[in-house]
Every structure is written in structure tokens, then in C-alpha cells.
Write a protein that binds this DNA or RNA. Structure first.
Length: 273
DNA sequence: AAAGGCTGCAACCGCTCCATA
DNA sequence: TTATGGAGCGGTTGCAGCCTT
């Protein structure tokens, strides 16, 4: 309790002292919570909130622990495999963030939700379509996801498409979810961690997949908007969204026109802004 | 250099579900 | 059966830091 009193020693009034604290957590609060959970375990959050002396709600303590303080929380950028998993699992389950998070070890539902809102929905916005629209789903399924698989396989040493498919587990074999590999899932192994991808989706990565079609048309001209990729010879790597990366990174507008050309070739009324 | 806009993320809110008395 | 409290979930908000003008 001394810790908490020290934290809040600058509180001006007794009335305010009795208020529940909100907002960003301090290092001292984090230390108190970590110490308390290490002794008493991560359950009964209201009890923890009261007993620890933290003037936080149980919900706030739980959230802070799960999303930030938990020792197995993974930080850093979302990997290609994780991006693929998010796209795929969201297509299966929708906004079931906690369920999706179960298949991304160390990632929290909050992190995945933020990723979806800030990255994926941004792309949908640029396409002037809803994330639940057929256009967007087609874009995900036929461009972004196959491209992600290509890049994942390119990174994995040396893994061909056939080798990836061979990693599909026997659906008849009983396993515990979410790890080891769930029946019907494919295991990617990279950077000392593993990811699991529903095997049903790997069929889209075969040699006849839309990804090949996509590759074939790289550098094609997209008309009607002032965008002229014909000047961009020698494309570099495509980024996560099917756009060219590196020095030849496509802008959002360029990728917008490219994707429109792929999926709405007959439409000329769209505009980018 | 400064101001305003934008982005990404941490945290909160409200609701639902579930266990227990 | 119903009331109550705790836990968990998805949606939303606030803000720090970055970017653009």
C-alpha cells in the first residue's frame, strides 16, 4: 500500500484519492500488479484490484495484465504468417478477436483488433468498399492472401509450394487445439516460432492460383487515373498488400488503381482520394 | 520551425455470459 | 428460479508521436 500512496502522493484531495484511477499505467503500478499476480495468480481480478492497493478496477488490472504485462506477450511487428492467419481466420469467424488470438501465440485480441482496424480497414477504405463486401473479400482471397503465402514460402528455407502443402496435417489425427497443429491446418515454421494456417486455404496457393495470375499482370498498365506503372520497370518486392515494396513501393493510390483494375475493370466511376 | 492533420495503439465502456448462492 | 457479481468480449475513444504543409 505504501507503493500506491507514493504513486498518488501528488493527489490534491482526499476525495480524489478515493476515485478510481483511469488512463495510462505508470511503471510503479505495473510493478505492483506484476508482483501481486506473481504471488496470487491471474484470477479474481476485483480481489487483486482491491488487495493490491491499486486504485484500478478489476477489469483495468485484467486488461493491463493480458495486453501488456503478461510475460508471454509478443511485441513487435505482425509477421507475414500472422497477417495471413488474421486474414484467414477473420474470413472464417469474423470479429471474433479473442478466438483469432488463440491461434497467434503471444498476440492479444486487442492487438489483432487494432491491426484489423488500422491496416485492413484502411485498405478497404481506399478501395471504397466495405470490409464485408464481396470486392474486398475477393481482393483478400485472390491477391493479398496468396501473395502473403508466396512471401512466407520465399522466406522459409527452402520451401516450395509442394513442401508447404506436404505440411498439411492428417485431419484424422486427433490433436489439441490450438497447438500442436490442428487438424486441417498447415504449419509454417520460421524465426523460431510456428504458425498454423487452415489447410483449406492452401489450395489457393497452387500453381493455378490467382496469385499466379496476379504475378503475370505485374507491371500492367492501369488506365484512367494518371497512374502509369509502365514507367516502373524492374519491380521490387511486393509488400503485404500486393503492392510493390522497396524503392518501387506503390503508394496507396497506385495500389488502389491496380486493385480496381483487377476486380472492377469495367468500372470507371471510382476515384481515389 | 510551427501548426494542424493523421495514425497507431493503449485503455475504457457497455454488454453478455456464466457461476454461485 | 432469480439475483448478483465476476470475467470476458467487441466496439469505441483519447492521446502521443509522427507526418505534412
Amino acid at each position: 500500500m505504501e507503493d500506491y500512496e507514493r504513486i498518488n502522493s501528488n493527489s490534491p484531495t482526499h476525495e480524489e484519492d478515493s476515485d478510481v484511477r483511469k488512463g495510462p499505467w505508470t511503471e510503479e503500478e505495473d510493478a505492483i500488479l506484476v508482483n501481486f499476480v506473481s504471488i496470487h495468480g491471474d484470477a479474481r481480478w476485483n480481489h487483486i484490484a482491491r488487495s493490491s492497493g491499486l486504485k484500478r478496477t478489476g477489469k483495468s488490472c485484467r486488461l493491463r495484465w493480458l495486453n501488456y504485462l503478461r510475460p508471454d506477450v509478443r511485441r513487435g511487428n505482425i509477421t507475414l504468417e500472422e497477417q495471413f492467419m488474421i486474414l484467414k481466420l477473420h474470413s472464417l469467424w469474423g470479429n471474433r478477436w479473442s478466438k483469432i488470438a488463440q491461434y497467434l501465440p503471444g498476440r492479444t485480441d486487442n492487438e489483432i483488433k487494432n491491426y484489423w482496424r488500422t491496416r485492413v480497414q484502411k485498405q478497404a477504405k481506399h478501395l471504397r468498399c466495405d470490409v464485408n463486401s464481396n470486392l474486398f473479400k475477393e481482393t483478400m482471397r485472390n491477391v493479398w492472401m496468396p501473395r502473403l503465402v508466396e512471401r512466407i514460402n520465399a522466406q522459409s528455407l527452402p520451401t516450395t509450394c509442394e513442401q508447404v502443402e506436404s505440411m498439411i496435417t492428417d485431419p484424422s489425427q486427433p490433436v489439441n487445439e490450438p497447438s500442436p497443429v490442428e487438424p486441417g491446418f498447415v504449419q509454417f515454421s520460421q524465426n523460431h516460432h510456428q504458425q498454423f494456417v487452415p489447410a483449406t486455404e492452401l489450395s489457393a496457393t497452387s500453381s493455378n492460383s490467382p496469385a499466379e495470375t496476379f504475378s503475370d499482370v505485374r507491371g500492367g498498365v492501369v488506365n484512367g487515373s494518371g497512374y502509369d506503372p509502365s514507367g516502373q520497370t524492374g519491380f521490387g518486392e511486393f509488400n503485404d498488400w500486393g503492392c510493390v515494396g522497396g524503392d518501387n513501393m506503390w503508394t496507396d493510390e497506385e495500389s488502389f488503381w491496380f486493385l480496381q483494375d483487377q476486380f472492377c475493370p469495367d468500372t470507371t466511376s471510382y476515384s481515389y482520394n
